[in-house]
Simulated assay, not measured.
Amino acid sequence: MSNEQKVSKTPKAPKVKFFDGVKAEFKKIIWPDKDTLLKQSVAVVFVSIVMGIIISLIDVAAQYGVNFLTM
């Protein structure tokens, strides 16, 4: 046998079970109460609507500008 075929195996560290780690991390989560969840959801919807309006206004202005330049 050549030296390349003789590979010494080093001892590996013991494996931690994946789902035990997931369970431990889930215990650290602080879930929001209903009031906080409602307030944050309303804020997300409001900001999304406002950003949609702003983006559509910019789109209309850009379209008007392109049409003005190409006429």
Rank of each mutant, 00 (worst) to 15 (best):
V42L: 11
S48C: 09
L37Q: 05
L37T: 01
V45T: 06
D35R: 15
S41T: 11
V45I: 06
I49T: 03
M71A: 11
A24E: 09
V44Q: 10
I53G: 10
A13S: 13
G52W: 03
S2D: 14
L69V: 03
A43Y: 02
V45E: 09
K17T: 06
S8I: 12
L69Q: 05
K34F: 15
K39A: 02
G21V: 09
V50T: 14
F68L: 12
I58D: 09
A61P: 00
Q5T: 09
K9N: 00
V44N: 09
S56A: 12
F46M: 14
F46L: 10
Y64C: 02
I49C: 08
W31K: 13
N67V: 00
F68P: 00
D33I: 01
K9L: 05
V66F: 08
K27N: 01
K15C: 03
I54N: 04
N67K: 01
F26P: 04
K6R: 15
L57Y: 08
L57M: 11
S48G: 05
V60P: 01
D33M: 10
K12T: 05
S56C: 14
L57A: 10
K23L: 04
S8Y: 05
A62E: 15
M1T: 11
S8K: 11
V22H: 02
T10M: 13
A62I: 15
D59K: 05
F18N: 04
F46R: 15
M71D: 01
K17A: 10
A43S: 03
L69E: 00
D35K: 15
S48N: 09
N67H: 02
L38V: 12
V45S: 07
K17E: 13
L37C: 06
I58R: 13
Y64E: 04
G52S: 13
I29H: 06
V45F: 08
S2G: 14
K9Y: 11
T70N: 00
D59R: 10
K15I: 01
V16K: 04
G52R: 14
F68S: 05
L57I: 14
I49K: 07
V47I: 12
K34W: 14
V22Y: 04
S41F: 03
V66P: 06
D35F: 14
S48Y: 08
I53N: 07
K17S: 05
V22E: 05
M71G: 07
A13G: 14
Q63W: 12
I49M: 13
F18R: 07
L69C: 01
V16T: 08
V44K: 12
N3W: 06
I54C: 10
T10H: 12
V7W: 09
V7L: 13
V7E: 11
A13I: 10
K12F: 03
N3T: 07
M1G: 14
I55V: 07
V66K: 05
M1H: 10
K9D: 05
Q63I: 14
N3K: 08
K39F: 03
N67P: 01
G21I: 10
F19L: 11
N3F: 08
E25T: 11
K27V: 01
K15H: 04
A61N: 07
V16H: 07
I54G: 06
D20F: 08
N67C: 02
A61F: 01
F68I: 04
K17V: 12
I30G: 11
K12M: 02
V45H: 01
A61W: 02
K34G: 15
P11F: 08
T36A: 13
I29A: 08
D20P: 03
Y64S: 06
E25M: 10
I49E: 00
P11N: 14
D59G: 13
F68K: 07
D59C: 12
